[in-house]
Nucleic acid binder design. Structure first.
Lengths: 257, 257
DNA sequence: GCTCATACTTTACGGCATAAAGAATCATCC
DNA sequence: GGATGATTCTTTATGCCGTAAAGTATGAGC
């Protein structure tokens, strides 16, 4: 079971996110840690263990107890908020528009896709009521800067930005979770997938007859890339096709009134 | 912190999902519960408390201890798998196609949107779930049956089915999480949002200058429906606009090649 | 050299899923 | 009809988790 987190105390999170740390002269022992170091350690642990990482684990990586972290960070939720924004610093903040908005949006989407692949736990951070940190702002601004060049009105663009985000996130989630499940049991994707179909077929042999259209969709396959694990072939193909449709829709909106 | 779950032992889950329970003559005390009763109780508790519901809470609702449930269900993850599929039984399994695929897909999307509103915890159940239950199959089959009438090839439809799903889920998630966060702190959406912007503005007054395009998008607003909470106005509007773009894209694919 | 804020550890609490063991129930066989 | 043993359910216990509270060591400023 994986943990879904984020949404610490907004005031604290926002201050930590936006306010630069000011080094003052103070009594007491020198701080051996820093918010930055803790956030980095947190990201490293989460990349390995997923969102179910524990404060104890983060502390251990820094040679401290879990409680030592509470000197720097109010709690786990706020830490996740900080980790979330920090990772986003990896992403580009602007895209060339020489060939128009469409290739630029495609690049943005692929960058996000790969980003989620590197840090799957990010997909578990709550989306609504975002604790908007500077880097998340920058990432969304980058997409918005591409899309304004379509000339579409703001309220339509908001829907489009949302749709693209939901799509990329959702597609990435599918892969991330599939990988996590396979990785957890140590099975390869392919075996894992087949093992399940086998059980299903054994119990419900008439699946194809009961859900004929799904069966139809499933059977129309492109040749498989042997480099990628079984499930990821599907995911990549679906991502490309879905994105194309989405972009076609935007193009339609641009062309028409 | 909310829990993200699902993905129990696939064999057990699949058997419980697809195999009808056979009542045999057996020694020992009569079972006072049943898998069905437990699943229903689980759904009721999850509707109230979200995915962070506990086995203890489910047991209590049935007048038993948490451990009593383990006689019927292997563990919490498998229970979530069952709850997930059971709720899906609420959804229609077919849609009229008299006016073509577009209104039918729109209906499907709105039904899903409302469904997620009734059972927000469902959004926390893993997506890459190979543990497909009969009702989830039926829901996706319903969408597929609408979309085959476009005449598009299977592999393109897979991408489209995925895109629609991701979009609806993502949009619903935003609302669900907003509501959950509001409920948790007891604040209304609006206050919450304003409080946060206030903190943000206090710390980073130049936000509009730093992210000019986002500022532009944010300021182009439709008149607000006073019936709905602040954030939900946004969400509903974005849902409608995003869906329109997505459907336009499908239409383009149908018309073109 | 004393004061006291600070960094960090230790211990402890209440919550969770669930393993293990025990108590109660009841169809079946002798 | 009484013993057997499978079955339901409770009790107790284990080992996680986040984090509150209290204790110890450090070092700047008076």
């Amino acid at each position: 079971m994986v943990v879904y987190a984020g949404q610490g105390d907004p005031r604290r999170s926002i201050e930590l996110l936006w306010r630069g740390t000011v080094a003052e002269k103070r009594p007491g022992p020198k701080p051996g840690l820093s918010v930055d170091a803790i956030v980095d350690a947190g990201i490293a642990v989460a990349d390995e263990q997923g969102m179910a990482f524990s404060m104890r684990a983060v502390g251990e990586r820094l040679g401290r107890t879990a409680m030592a972290l509470y000197t720097y960070v109010p709690g786990k939720n706020e830490l996740v908020d900080l980790m979330y924004d920090r990772t986003m610093a990896e992403l580009p903040t602007s895209y060339p528009l020489d060939d128009g908005w469409r290739p630029a949006v495609t690049r943005w989407a692929h960058d996000m896709w790969e980003f989620y692949g590197r840090h799957p736990w990010v997909l578990q951070v709550s989306q609504a009521r975002p604790v908007l940190g500077p880097h998340e702002f920058a990432v969304v601004e980058a997409l918005a800067r591409i899309l304004v060049t379509t000339g579409l009105p703001g309220r339509q663009l908001r829907g489009i930005v949302g749709a693209i985000n939901y799509f990329v996130r959702g597609a990435a989630q599918t892969v991330a979770e599939a990988r996590a499940a396979g990785g957890a049991t140590g099975e390869a994707d392919e075996e894992w997938w087949y093992a399940r179909s086998a059980v299903l077929m054994e119990i419900e042999p008439d699946l194809a007859k009961k859900f004929p259209v799904l069966h139809l969709l499933e059977s129309d396959r492109e040749p498989v890339d042997p480099e990628l694990p079984y499930l990821e072939n599907d995911a990549v193909e679906n991502f490309r096709n879905g994105l194309r449709v989405l972009l076609d829709g935007i193009e339609g909106a641009v062309a028409k009134p």
